[in-house]
Design a binder for these strands. Structure first.
Lengths: 212, 212
DNA sequence: TCTGCGACTGAAACGTGTTTCGAAATGGTG
DNA sequence: CACCATTTCGAAACACGTTTCAGTCGCAGA
């Protein structure tokens, strides 16, 4: 049972790898697509489980079998978005001469992408923030994507991703930068900070944390 | 109408100052006390509006007249807690020779206080994180208390609180430190980080942001 | 082809946040 | 004290996340 390949106990969301048949993978995809579509249209409140199920053309019970709660669902959607962003990022080396430049570039790029769809960002961010311990796995996946993104930016483009061996200090710095980024986004999402404020916070954090 | 003294439109929580009679102030206090007690016993989920109303000995409708949502209620409770912490802090000058030392002292002290009551902290933190734009006022109050606390720590104890004139840079730094602190607490509350991790994040942030 | 088992469906039911509303209580004013 | 406005109460109703369950479907193995 330690390999997780047998019966999946419904504590976690079903991941792409958990799903055996093409039909199931397609169901999962339809559910996440419906989630993104509804979130994009009306934010967190518009992502209603009955609406998601209907739009994805699955029964409510099935939706809950794939994602045990609304928060699991939204955080899983966030993970998929980040995964896609990371794939896109992998295509080219990150531009910039210093670690600070490259980190700013990556965060700026992602921030702008998020700000282009405020409702979606609101839904995903609030779910992420509201998640409790039961969502640890999904949260961890998101965290991995963010860390990976920052590490790729902090290290020189010449270093292959697999060979990056970050120091503890680097990890701690990346964690702090990630925290600041997320906190800024939360504030932007709730109207407590402008887009410019988000940029400024990140700028301060990166500049001070990554001075060469 | 600009002075807010006439009929209160129920967009915001009723503040202490909004309330005319002693009976009303007492009701408000009973509600917040009940909130804290329930949160302390069982965390966010245990703060059920019907339970709060019953324990505070008010009708459900009255509870909603004082605090228009569960999140308003919890964030208002958080604001009161911070206010009390600030009052306590004002009694003595903050010890420490450098700004970094003093900030670490203040954050450490508050962090330990929060960690002594994990359920309460979970309830308040999650509400704060989940708050949307309609809670802007209450959130802002909390932000003021945190900023004030950090400013008092960053400036030398000799400077009277009223005369502190922080630079933009100082404000930006305080904001980043506050963000990191909050993000760390969120992670601790959701079991994603240990108490030591919280200390470490704050340490990294303060050390790097406030080096002299 | 038949059988059995897990997955999916459809619908109802439950819990808790939130709203609503008529009646009773309260408090200030003439 | 009588009157009016506002507040509070009590209780029901509603909305949406979540659970439950009996029936149906799809498919792997005999």
């Amino acid at each position: 049972m330690s390999d997780g390949s047998s019966t999946v106990t419904s504590i976690n969301s079903l991941t792409f790898e958990d799903l055996g048949s093409a039909a199931q993978r397609d169901r999962r995809k339809r559910i996440l697509d419906a989630t993104i579509a509804l979130a994009s249209k009306g934010g967190f409140d518009a992502v209603q489980m009955r609406a998601v199920a209907e739009r994805a053309d699955v029964a409510l019970g099935t939706l809950y079998r794939y994602f045990p709660s609304k928060v699991h669902l939204l955080v899983s959607a966030l993970a998929r978005e980040f995964e896609q962003a990371n794939v896109a990022l992998d295509r080219k080396p990150v531009p910039g001469d210093t670690a600070a430049d490259r980190v700013m570039y990556v965060l700026g790029r992602n921030t702008r992408a998020l700000q282009r769809d405020p409702n979606l960002t609101e839904a995903l961010t609030r779910a992420f923030m509201f998640a409790d311990a039961s969502v640890a796995n999904e949260i961890h996946t998101v965290g991995m994507h963010v860390t990976r993104m920052l590490m790729r930016a902090m290290y020189d483009a010449a270093t292959p991703t697999e060979e990056i061996e970050p120091t503890d200090e680097d990890i701690a710095i990346a964690k702090v930068i990630g925290d600041v980024w997320l906190a800024s986004l939360v504030q932007w999402v709730t109207g407590r900070a402008s887009a410019a404020d988000v940029g400024k916070s990140i700028d301060v954090a990166v500049r001070l944390l990554l001075r060469d």
